[in-house]
Simulated scan of single mutants.
Amino acid sequence: MKKFKVGCVQATPALFNKSKTMDIVLNWIQKASKQDVQLLVFPESFIPAYPAGLGFGTVVGSRTEAGRDQFREYWENSVEVGADETQKIAKWAKEYEMYITIGITEKDTISKTLYCTLLYFSDKGSLMGKHRKLKPTAAERLVWGEGDGTSLSTFDTSLGKIGGLICWENYMPLARMAMYQKGIEIYVAPTADSRDSWNSSLIHIACEGRCYVIGSNQFIRKSDYPEHLQKELAEDRPEVLSRGGSVIISPLGEVLAGPLYNEEGLLTAEIDHDEIIRAKMDFDVIGHYARNDVFGFDVNSQPDISKD
């Protein structure tokens, strides 16, 4: 399929409430379907929300009982891959004939570890696969474990090769190269970073990879937290904890939609595979611009290209 429409969701989940957030997910899927979107991208850890502003009762060398209770509440509202929530999203993907990528906090029910995970669903209703964030950033390391190379994959779909990285993984040059190495064409970059510098990075990635880039972020305010958690947010934090900045970018770095700030919304843009070919004329990081006689690159446990 040479041309089709993609959608990028910037929205506010029901923080720490996966049941209500699932209703929000369905609502945005339905909105996107009315606009003939065939690939819909949700933000990082949309279920049950990126826990911006929370410290889970920690300082170096000390934890609190209240912080452990916050972690337990977050864990209980996180998603077990293959269970009810993922089955529902797969069902909706089939019903609305739409590829869907969505960030979740994934819970491993055996180890009890949480992961920042990106899920990929096909328009036929299957969970194509998942990617676990390789390196949680700063205080995120208290909340999430580390993924590994087994989830550094792209998916060969009827829309093209889809894949991506989560938030500051995109600052890791070798992680990006792992995506380019697989011929990625539609690069999803769910995030919690709403600074101007973030969109500059996404423009760079689009130009570097000669691929479409879809950056999706949440819009979160202090008042969106449940009341008992609002009390845990530092007083000096602004009311808007994440202003968004979602964006869709072409393979030559042209901003096609967004960036969207300080509100919820659905960005859409047309993907044209001919534009990828045109962009590769003068730069192809794994093709004619590569110097395999000078540089070697290998990724531990990186899987073969996955089919949907």
Rank of each mutant, 00 (worst) to 15 (best):
W168F: 14
A257E: 10
T137K: 11
V9S: 02
A192Y: 11
K124V: 07
M98G: 01
R176D: 07
R210V: 09
L266I: 03
Y74F: 15
I305N: 10
E263S: 11
G145V: 05
K94I: 05
S126N: 15
S158E: 15
Q87L: 14
Q10P: 10
V60F: 15
I214N: 03
L142E: 12
G147R: 01
G244T: 06
F155S: 04
L54I: 10
K222D: 06
T268R: 07
S33L: 01
I277H: 12
V81G: 10
N77M: 07
I166T: 02
S197T: 13
S153L: 07
I100N: 00
G82M: 10
N217Y: 02
K2N: 15
S246I: 03
I249E: 04
H204W: 13
Q38H: 14
V188E: 00
E140P: 02
G55D: 15
V299D: 05
P226S: 05
K107L: 10
D36G: 04
N262A: 09
A138W: 13
G265C: 08
V37E: 03
S126F: 12
I89F: 01
F42D: 00
K31T: 02
C167Q: 00
G163W: 03
S19P: 00
S19R: 13
G164W: 01
I248L: 10
L174P: 01
E208A: 09
P43F: 01
I110L: 14
A206P: 08
V79R: 00
D108M: 06
A178Y: 02
G183T: 07
E232W: 04
T58N: 13
D123Y: 11
I47T: 01
K231F: 06
I47A: 02
E264K: 04
F283S: 10
Q87E: 15
I47K: 00
E65A: 13
M128Q: 11
L40Q: 02
F155L: 06
L174D: 14
T21G: 04
F4L: 12
P259A: 08
P13D: 01
A279Y: 08
M177R: 14
S194F: 14
L54W: 08
P190A: 04
L39V: 05
S45P: 00
D284N: 15
F4Q: 11
L118D: 05
A32D: 03
Y50K: 10
V188Q: 01
G67H: 08
D156I: 07
R243Y: 08
G7A: 09
R278V: 07
I214T: 07
N292R: 14
R210W: 06
E270W: 11
I110F: 15
S201C: 09
D298L: 11
L241V: 06
C167A: 02
